[in-house]
Design a protein around this nucleic acid. Structure first.
Lengths: 202, 202
DNA sequence: GTCTATATGGCGATAGAC
DNA sequence: GTCTATCGCCATATAGAC
């Protein structure tokens, strides 16, 4: 059954993604992936030969999703302020729906730093594209001394509340998911204002 | 030899800290810890019974170091602006000297969220103390709508460049440690300005 | 392609000599 | 307290029947 082949392979990929995201490479078990996919452990090896190869197969996909897809917005006809607000809003939504994403990526890129550079270039990430974000900026209102700091600021402000989630929830919100969610929503506006403010000419 | 007892235990703790910080709990090996300590694997179990117990022994110490020690500065006679600048400067220095700290903490608190809350309270972390940072603030110049966002902003801006280090180095700095170091130094001023700016009344 | 059974190796932990 | 030797388990990976 050829259709079943594809279906099985995709089911393994889906299961592997879930388990790897939650447990990381070291914590993940091939048995758990097989169970999650509803098949036998040997079949996972039949399709992907090794844990490492299975991991690589999903890492690229997951990584490219984590690495901000601003580039769609960059070439749109939005104003600079709109682009920033659009990115922050969408990115926080994406992370909220994939809450394991940030911790997973951070742990794995630090566990195996060598893998990344080539992977990033394959995906088409190029810091030169940063310039386009600021192409149509109003230079009488804003001055960007260093676009790299601007980007790191924006990403840090977006991502940090997700990687510190257990601390924030336990310390500030009495483990309430609702309060945490509200906090994230508030941040969209706060981050936008903060980064825009940081480059505004006084 | 009683003195040798202490020395051995401390050597194990030092080795365990190094290995756990680099590899995380799942990635760490008791054999590697023993090698690093220059002793036998059985001796590690003799002192700490299990990997889990050894991990717990160092986690508290490492965690309490990661969680910002603002509290010394809070009750000093510095001005609000000086307190913020002081904290950011010292915290970035601390992280620069312990580069594995952020990724390790983030991974472990997400791997085992239940452990944290009690641990934080034991250390004496209390969000109510946040108020003291802003106690002597000049209310004609600044308005802090929500101290929690202020703190998350400041911590996120400080910590993010460390957890994203491999990406930043590979993507922006051609893997140059010097350029990365310079970037971190620049950030001290930038972060201070950004967070102060974000609460300034226009 | 999918399964059961098993090989192979590594790891945490313990026993026991010194 | 410190070591060598080993147990017992679990995880990755493969062999081989269907």
């Amino acid at each position: 059954m050829v259709e079943n082949d594809k279906s099985t392979e995709k089911q393994i990929l889906g299961a592997a993604k879930k388990v790897f995201l939650e447990k990381g490479f070291d914590g993940a078990r091939m048995q758990e992936i097989a169970d999650e996919a509803g098949i036998n452990k040997a079949l996972v090896h039949y399709y992907f030969r090794s844990k490492e190869k299975l991991f690589d197969a999903i890492f690229i996909e997951v990584f490219s999703r984590f690495f901000p897809k601003v580039f769609g917005a960059i070439f749109s006809d939005m104003s600079f302020e709109e682009k920033i607000a659009f990115f922050i809003d969408n990115y926080i939504n994406l992370l909220a729906e994939n809450s394991f994403l940030p911790v997973f990526i951070i742990h794995e890129i630090n566990r195996n730093p060598d893998k990344i550079v080539g992977m990033m270039k394959n995906i088409g990430v190029d810091p030169k594209n940063l310039q386009f974000i600021f192409a149509d900026i109003d230079k009488t209102k804003y001055k960007i001394a260093d676009p790299r700091h601007f980007m790191v600021n924006m990403l840090g402000l977006c991502i940090f509340p997700f990687i510190a989630k257990p601390i924030l929830k336990g310390l500030l919100f009495n483990n309430s998911d609702n309060e945490y969610k509200t906090f994230l929503d508030q941040r969209k506006k706060i981050i936008t204002e903060t980064v825009i403010n940081s480059i505004r000419i006084k």
